[in-house]
């Protein structure tokens, strides 16, 4: 083979591989390119992460962050007119719907856990919660230990369920457990006295209390069953989309823009009723924003 022929062949190969590289979209990005649409899964009542406003449009802290990702996908695919669909999910169907392709990205209040990482992947942690309990102030309960033998309510399909069972076994606490379909139901059962405590993520408890008719009548216990990171969910084994999500959200955190978005949802009046959760950034949240990561909880 002459040098000329060799050079020509090399050039050809380079062109072919470059073309292949440009085209080699995989996973969610490939799907978005082919179908011309991306579908964001949202929650309908996870205040202030992801919920419906009065017009029936999804809004919230997680929805704002996912908006950044959608913009990045549009830019990456050079498809400014990419169609963005929103599809409601619940705590029990969010993983199957993500896996079967009904949604491409879940933006709600989902705990990033090692168990879930066997099925799905997560973006950078955007909020850190403590699993705690809301009680009525007049119940006189201040610590977890005082809940032994009492009726506890939690929301079915959440990580609080196995956590509570484990705690009950370890501490020999002998709870009676009842389950609400959603946080508002669980809260009502507690407010009604049918359960003494509502065990759930502290920020969600704060949302329920702020929304109640007498916010001063409830308290969140100081203790914590454990801390959990929240993040957006995407399909597993989709490195291209995962990289895009990490880059986009990482940039929002590094630039400090995250503090503005945080302030908008956690320490200001929010729709639909103008309540203010008054939940300033704590140390764990500051740490998550300073060092973006997708570590799951055991």
């Amino acid at each position: 083979m002459t040098a000329f022929k060799q050079a020509a062949l090399f050039a050809c190969l380079t062109i072919v591989s470059a073309a292949a590289h440009a085209q080699a979209l995989t996973g969610t990005l490939q799907k978005a390119k082919e179908t011309g649409a991306i579908t964001v899964g949202y929650r309908e009542s996870s205040i202030p992460f992801s919920y419906l406003d009065n017009a029936g449009k999804p809004i919230g802290y997680a929805i704002d962050l996912c908006g950044k990702i959608v913009d990045a996908v549009k830019a990456e695919l050079k498809m400014p007119n990419l169609k963005v669909n929103y599809s409601p999910v619940t705590s029990s169907n969010r993983i199957p719907l993500l896996e079967n392709g009904t949604i491409d990205l879940e933006c709600g209040s989902t705990t990033n856990s090692v168990a879930r990482q066997k099925q799905v992947a997560f973006g950078p942690t955007y909020f850190v919660i403590n699993v705690s309990a809301a009680v009525k102030k007049d119940s006189g309960i201040e610590r977890f230990e005082q809940l032994k033998g009492k009726t506890i309510v939690t929301t079915s399909g959440t990580t609080s369920v196995p956590l509570l069972k484990k705690y009950a076994k370890a501490e020999d606490a002998d709870f009676k457990e009842i389950y609400g379909k959603d946080h508002a139901e669980s809260f009502l059962l507690m407010a009604d006295g049918r359960a003494v405590a509502f065990v759930m993520d502290d920020i969600l408890l704060a949302g329920q209390i702020a929304n109640s008719k007498d916010p001063s009548g409830y308290r969140i216990l100081a203790g914590s069953l454990r801390s959990e990171p929240y993040s957006m969910m995407l399909r597993k084994n989709d490195p291209q989309f995962k990289a895009l999500v990490d880059k986009t959200i990482g940039a929002v955190m590094k630039s400090g823009e995250i503090h503005q978005i945080y302030k908008k949802w956690f320490t200001s009046a929010i729709p639909p009723k103008g309540i203010n959760l008054n939940f300033p950034e704590n140390a764990a949240n500051k740490e998550a924003f300073a060092n973006p990561n997708d570590k799951g909880v055991e």
């Binding site: 309908e44 009542s45 205040i47 919920y51 419906l52 029936g56 409601p88 999910v89 619940t90 169907n93 959603d182 946080h183 508002a184 139901e185 809260f187 009502l188 329920q208 929304n211 109640s212 639909p272 009723k273």
Partner: peptide, 20 residues
């Protein structure tokens, strides 16, 4: 199944606003 029919819409508002 989380569909927004009349009851579904009411359930969603009830949950969001804690007004069951």
């Amino acid at each position: 199944l989380n569909v927004t029919d009349l009851v579904g819409a009411a359930v969603k508002i009830a949950q969001r606003d804690s007004r069951l």
